[in-house]
């Protein structure tokens, strides 16, 4: 009974000013302020803002042509067009994100644990009455909050700017698609964030973990495709000797192999979300295409198409987090 009373005491005093926050929320607050004040975040956020403004400028100046193009089934989705069209001088915003997002994630996480350890602050924190996992959870949550705020404000800025400049009403389905794109970008950056946190737990030197994270990123963005192409050329039989169904099955295998890359998953998913007329991410047979009208599909259908990609990204994120959690909990805490 006494313990119950104590529980209620805690419950009622929680709202008053005298209450103390839980260690976890204290840590989150501190980490968020650290991230926001750190130079590398300011630099990267500035970079992303610049590319955002650049690609917005390019797409706004080409908006008239794009919406006038009668052959394009997506021409009426003005706000999605804002995110995707380009005249070739600058890549569209979502391509920039697939490129800069990993850098942002890596920059925010590569020294999460090992800098605390080499500074001697880790032992000091662990000597306080806090659970060890609070720290790694707080690090992840704080970075996630910062990333989410950044992307959400960018997409709202885009929508608002579009409203002001064109004066065209936004369709609910467009809003949903843009929000889904935002969430997807957050998940994508969260994957790289978790990967770099994992490396920061694994390696004692911040330089090692940063370089390893960048190496992984470079491998996936540049070398993986080259490697896959070389292997395919060496292994696959000559396409001229194959039947059509064999070519399709081989194509599917190649696509599956390429989709081990997170950026491929992200690109697949964003294209589908931002271009409503995309209805499949694999090759379609003539029978499947027969009778199909080139028209946009509904949000739900698009989401169904990208669902495997999204769950793949989430799974990769969770695996990285679980690994770093495991390693960190087993870790000897000493300088």
């Amino acid at each position: 009974m006494k313990s119950q009373l104590a529980y209620f005491n805690g419950l009622f005093s929680a709202g008053t000013k005298n209450a103390s926050a839980s260690p976890y929320s204290v840590m989150v607050r501190k980490e968020v302020s650290d991230q926001v004040r750190s130079w590398r975040f300011i630099v990267l956020a500035g970079l992303i803002l610049l590319t955002f403004l650049g690609s917005m400028y390019v797409s706004l100046s080409n908006l008239r042509q794009a919406t006038a193009n009668a052959a394009d089934p997506d021409r009426l989705f003005l706000y999605l067009k804002l995110l995707t069209i380009t005249d070739g001088t600058l890549p569209p915003f979502h391509v920039f994100i697939s490129f800069l997002g990993p850098l942002l994630g890596i920059a925010m996480g590569f020294d999460a644990i090992n800098s605390e350890q080499s500074n001697g602050t880790l032992v000091r924190l662990m000597a306080q009455p806090v659970y060890r996992d609070s720290l790694i959870n707080a690090k992840f949550t704080a970075s996630l909050i910062v990333i989410s705020t950044l992307f959400l404000s960018l997409s709202l800025l885009m929508t608002g700017g579009g409203l002001m400049i064109t004066g065209v009403k936004i369709e609910p389905s467009e809003l949903v698609r843009i929000l889904c794109f935002t969430v997807l970008s957050i998940i994508y950056v969260a994957f790289w964030l978790n990967l770099s946190i994992l490396l920061s737990v694994r390696f004692r030197q911040t330089a090692t973990s940063a370089l390893t994270a960048i190496a992984i990123w470079l491998f996936f963005t540049v070398f993986y495709q080259i490697l896959v192409n070389i292997i395919i050329k060496a292994v696959l039989p000559d396409p001229n000797t194959l039947t059509e169904s064999q070519i399709i099955s081989y194509n599917n295998i190649i696509l599956t192999v390429l989709r081990f890359v997170p950026s491929q998953l992200f690109t697949d998913a964003t294209t589908t979300l931002l271009m409503p007329s995309v209805r499949s991410l694999g090759p379609l047979t003539m029978e499947q295409m027969a009778g199909a009208i080139p028209a946009p599909i509904s949000v739900r259908e698009s989401l169904l198409v990208v669902w495997p990609q999204v769950s793949g990204l989430i799974a990769a994120t969770v695996v990285c987090f679980a690994l770093s959690y495991y390693l960190f909990m087993r870790r000897e805490i000493r300088t």
Partner: peptide, 25 residues
């Protein structure tokens, strides 16, 4: 080899620890 957050002042470093120990805000 105790370490502190180099970007925070002495007071900020200390009040962080105070908050982690559940001292009322």
């Amino acid at each position: 080899n105790v370490g502190f957050y180099n970007d925070l002042t002495a007071l900020e470093n200390l009040s962080y620890i105070a908050r982690l120990n559940g001292i009322p805000e």
